[in-house]
Design a protein around this nucleic acid. Structure first.
Ligand SMILES: NC(=O)c1ccc[n+]([C@@H]2O[C@H](COP(=O)([O-])OP(=O)(O)OC[C@H]3O[C@@H](n4cnc5c(N)ncnc54)[C@H](O)[C@@H]3O)[C@@H](O)[C@H]2O)c1
Ligand SMILES: NC(=O)c1ccc[n+]([C@@H]2O[C@H](COP(=O)([O-])OP(=O)(O)OC[C@H]3O[C@@H](n4cnc5c(N)ncnc54)[C@H](O)[C@@H]3O)[C@@H](O)[C@H]2O)c1
Lengths: 239, 239
DNA sequence: GTGACTTTGTGCATTTGTTCACGAGCGCGT
DNA sequence: ACGCGCTCGTGAACAAATGCACAAAGTCAC
């Protein structure tokens, strides 16, 4: 009934999180000259099951051809459009330390509409330095930089102690999407979206699984009997 | 009946992914001298709902006191133990480019048992250089470094083109947990766990939400004429 | 000791995500 | 033209995660 209007916003979060991977796989196929791909092949390339892939793609529309598969270029375009990569997303990076510098150099930005238009730091010694072809500006210039390029995404690469302040400043300039590399929570007003990337968190999750594997093996060695089959047959390894 | 034995292993993935954040929040509280905390407070500090927090913690055991809350130090210890942080996790980083250097310098490693014991690259110009107090070794020495320190986690910070080769080499030395910063899928044998961290993916997810917000606002502005709505008449863009 | 008050831990309903299985649509060979 | 084999799209079953609400279990004041 009302669902018709909301058809576009009805893309599940879990699906959105996988779209970038599909897009990357499609790009790789394009570079290898492949023009058509089946859900089975693409799913393998992206590390998911084919059923999941098809369900995901079905949320965007019907871009496949039954009996044939998907046109690589066309599907890539549709996913890019869904993700908003057909438009321009000017980005600023705040904090030009070790990490900020690496991020500024990262060429992966270019792929898909992201354009670094500002590098900021509060350290006077860094201001004016040239990094990846861009002059570092002082934090005080944030508002100027932001309005000059109508920046839409902010990246925080400062220590955790400064992250909330920096975030507040970004939000004040009208930025509504923040990617945070500092190991801390950010509180933001409604309508602002933040994501965090944290090395330490990832390592801890890996450690948990490693430990569990070790305990399982130990238990299995003692128990012995329960090892018989049970046949859960997990396919993918990464998780 | 079987559930008793597996009760410890039965920690849901979604819960595991949040434990590091709880631990971080608890550490912050300890530093501020707080010794006791309620689920409400801790949940706020970690950015989740208190019900979710309690359910998560209940999977580890009953470490709270009704009417009072949780003992900060004790809970932190229990979470750390569950994550395996009470033991040592020697780590190697492969690829000492911009990113690898930043990672090697990152002090967040130290927190919780992670110890960088090896920095590796295949570029002879880098081998022997001192980074963060460690001498860069050549890739050929990987097996030696790994067995010398019984390395359990490998971090890949090389370009995507080399990532699979590096991963294979890591797995060959017996490493069963890999953190991959290169923008590509890794295929690994069963029993090996991989996670990927990708800036570009995160930006794309942010872009999606930003775009949706913009479309929603636009749609809301036009709204009021819900009458004509039915399915086959999309407003702006094709579908 | 008792009762009022606080906060945990958890059963249950709801929502969200995944897997399965199969019908529908397409290209191709004959 | 027409069936045949292939692969998409999808509804229905299943599983996981979340949110809700409250009884159980503790503290504290007196
Ligand atoms: N280095 C890594 O590999 C890594 C990995 C994961 C997370 N992190 C996190 O990323 C952040 C940056 O790490 P880093 O190694 O680059 O640190 P760093 O100390 O080398 O650099 C921090 C930079 O931020 C600037 N800065 C500090 N406060 C500021 C403010 N209020 N406004 C503007 N600029 C400010 C400083 O001048 C400095 O240049 C830290 O929070 C760290 O925990 C780093
Ligand atoms: N720089 C970033 O901010 C950033 C962010 C996200 C992802 N990434 C990804 O991380 C990776 C590293 O980025 P970077 O900017 O540090 O690149 P870089 O080119 O500066 O460094 C790569 C290093 O890896 C080494 N290397 C290459 N092949 C190797 C092999 N087979 N064995 C051992 N060492 C090898 C090279 O000698 C070089 O020192 C890339 O895949 C990049 O896409 C980088």
């Amino acid at each position: 009934m009302v669902a018709d209007l909301t058809s576009r916003r009805g893309v599940p979060d879990a699906t959105v999180a996988r779209l970038p991977e599909y897009l990357r796989a499609l790009t790789a196929l394009t570079e290898r000259g492949v023009t058509s791909v089946s859900s089975e092949e693409l799913a393998a390339a992206a590390g998911v099951s084919s059923a999941k892939l098809r369900k995901d793609l079905s949320h965007l529309g019907s871009y496949g051809v039954r009996g044939v598969g998907y046109d690589v270029e066309h599907l890539a375009y549709e996913i890019a459009r869904e993700l908003g990569l057909t438009q321009d997303w000017p980005v600023v990076i705040v904090g030009m330390g070790n990490l900020g510098r690496a991020l500024a150099d990262y060429s992966g930005f270019i792929k898909g509409g992201f354009r670094v238009v500002g590098l900021l730091d509060r350290d006077p010694a860094l201001v004016g330095q040239d990094i990846a072809g861009l002059a570092v500006r002082h934090m005080d210039d944030l508002a100027a930089v932001a309005s000059e390029h109508s920046v839409s995404i902010g990246v925080i690469a400062t220590p955790a102690a400064s992250a909330q302040d920096v975030c507040d400043a970004l939000v004040d300039t009208g930025i509504r999407a923040v990617l945070n590399f500092a190991p801390c929570m950010l509180s933001v007003p409604d309508g602002v979206d933040t994501r965090r990337v944290d090395l330490s968190t990832e390592l801890q999750i890996l450690a948990f699984h490693s430990q569990r594997r070790m305990l399982d093996v130990a238990a299995e060695g003692v128990a012995g009997d329960e090892a018989a089959a049970s046949a859960p047959t997990p396919v993918g390894a990464a998780r």
